[in-house]
Amino acid sequence: MTIKREGSLFSPFRALKQLGKKPHTVQIPKVVKPPAERYRGFHTNDLEKCIGCGNCSRICPDNAIKMVPFPEYAKKEPGSMPLRPQIDYGRCCFCALCVEVCPTGSLQMVKTFTHVDDKKESFVFIPDSKVVHETPDFVLDTKDLRRK
C-alpha cells in the first residue's frame, strides 16, 4: 500500500489546540490511583492455614523465600512443619509462582506495593495476614512490617 510522501508545513500548528484541553496527568501524590484487582504486590500469609511445606521456597526462581522456624506453630498433624516463609524483597520478582503452587492457598498477594527505605535490611520481612490486611490504603509504608 503506497502512501503519499508529502506533508504540509502548517498541519503541525493544528496540534496547538491541545493547549485548550485538560491535561490527562495523574497527579500522583495528591490523587491515589488504585491498582487493579489482580495486582501482584507484597505477600500476605495466613500463619494458621500455612503448613510450612516449603513448596514456595522451592518454586521461587530467585531463591527469595527462606523458611524461618516458628516454634509456636508445631502442630501435630502429619506434614505440617513449624516453619513459615520469610520473603526477601531484594530478590523477589513478583511472579506469584509461590501463590500458585501453595497447597493450602495461605500465601496470597495484596495490592500494597510501596516500600522505600535507605536501609537494605528493611526489605526482608515475614508476611503475616494480620498485619497487611488491616490497612486499606494502597500506599502503605511497610517499614513497620519488619519483625520487631
Partner: peptide, 28 residues
C-alpha cells in the same frame, strides 16, 4: 550488592517499581 561500590541514598522495592513508588521515593 550495589552498595559495595557506590553509596546509595534510597532503595525502592518492586521488580520494576511502579510510578507511585518512584514518586514516593522522590518525596522521601
Amino acid at each position: 550488592h550495589l552498595d559495595k561500590y557506590i553509596p546509595i541514598d534510597l532503595y525502592i522495592a518492586g521488580c520494576m517499581p511502579r510510578p507511585q513508588s518512584i514518586v514516593r521515593a522522590f518525596e522521601d
